[in-house]
Simulated assay, not measured.
Amino acid sequence: MNPIKIKKALSIALLLFSASASAQTVGVKDVHDIVQKLTDQLVEVYPFPEISAKYQQAILRNEKAGRYVGLSEDSLAKKLTEDLRTVHKDVHLRVMKNEETYKRLSAPSGRRSDDSTELKRMKTQNYGFKSVQIDGAKSTAYIDIPGPFWGTQESFEMASAAMNMAAHSKYVILDIRHNPGGTGHMGRFIASYFYSPGNEKFYLNGFYKNRKMDEQEWTYSYVPGRRNPDAKVYILVGPGTASASEGLAYAMQKLGRATIVGDTTAGAGIAGSFVPLKRNLIAFVPVKMVVAPHSDEGWEGTGVIPDVFSGDEDALEIARKLIEKDRKDQ
């Protein structure tokens, strides 16, 4: 091949590579805009002002030191998350790259469309409910809920169907060991099936930076189908149990309505929502600390501590043994 043509081809390839690398790197101005929006949002809504001030100081200091220069979108998101968690380990608070969600959140409210990727995911995962197994001989229902807890009509219909299948069982096992959370409404919805109408319970309490906005969360006075207020409930948990699914385990434990079996949960106790930043980056910003009724303490940072630790043994087998023991004691 002609040496001149080879040289031209190499030059073009290098230019294309350089342009591609440049396009992937977040510029100084965009970095500043991302940092500014992230820290402003934290100061505005994070429920603990003293911590949000430390977040802001650390991120601005790192920006000034040039720690975010020359990074790709993914690398910048990872670095910001690491730096935030170095200040205070809130496992909810994170920055990530998600082009589809960024576009949806950035669109004017009247023009926002459903997230097709999320819709497909919901359908693929059966709206968070995997299976219901009924052992009629032992009057035991096992409900596998890997989640997440979605808040769509279809999700609540699926939950209602599962709970109604278990409505005649004396023992109910809820498996949320791999449930990463979602909407807290789903946990309250499930818990409501274990109380009679008119016996609503103060489930959890949520507080914001502005304590005048505190929210009391109660079990629902109405749920579709048949309730099971006399069932003995066992909830399986582990490190994969996080956020709203932790809320279900924590509330039922504090109410004395369920036996928690497994290992300590993730410890993600501050609810929040996604915020668009820039360059396809979004942040999950915690806004509401969720705690037990009449208390300022929840599971944030500590996780839900099981009543019965599973250790090396399978939590489901332990629950079944507990049920068998209870049956023999009858």
Rank of each mutant, 00 (worst) to 15 (best):
N2Q: 01
P3N: 01
K5T: 03
L10T: 10
S11W: 05
S11H: 13
S18R: 15
S18A: 15
A19T: 07
S22M: 14
V26K: 05
V26R: 04
V35D: 03
L42S: 11
L42K: 10
Y46D: 04
Y46W: 07
P49D: 09
A53Q: 15
K54E: 15
Q56I: 10
Q57P: 07
A58Y: 13
L60K: 15
L60S: 13
R61K: 15
E63C: 02
A65W: 02
G70T: 00
E73I: 00
L76W: 03
L84A: 02
L84G: 04
R85T: 00
T86S: 13
H88I: 00
K89M: 12
V95K: 06
V95A: 12
M96N: 02
L105H: 07
L105T: 00
A107M: 10
P108I: 06
S113F: 00
D114P: 03
T117G: 06
E118Q: 14
L119K: 07
K120N: 14
R121Q: 04
V132D: 08
A137I: 14
K138R: 15
T140W: 03
A141G: 14
Y142I: 08
D144F: 11
G147W: 13
W150F: 15
W150D: 13
G151I: 02
E154I: 06
A162L: 11
S169T: 11
I173M: 06
P180H: 10
G182S: 12
G184K: 08
G187P: 05
F189R: 07
I190M: 06
S192V: 07
P197M: 07
N199Y: 09
K201L: 07
Y203K: 03
F207V: 01
N210G: 04
R211M: 12
Q216F: 08
T219R: 09
T219D: 09
G225A: 13
R227W: 04
N228T: 12
V233I: 15
Y234L: 04
Y234P: 08
Y234K: 05
V237T: 15
P239W: 04
G240W: 09
A242N: 09
L248F: 10
Y250I: 02
Y250D: 02
Q253H: 02
R257T: 04
A258S: 11
T259K: 12
A266E: 06
S273N: 12
F274V: 02
F274H: 08
V275H: 04
N280W: 05
I282A: 03
I282G: 01
M289I: 00
A292N: 03
G298A: 00
G298W: 01
T302Q: 06
D307Q: 10
D307L: 11
V308T: 05
A315Y: 01
I318H: 08
A319Y: 09
K321T: 10
I323L: 08
R327S: 08
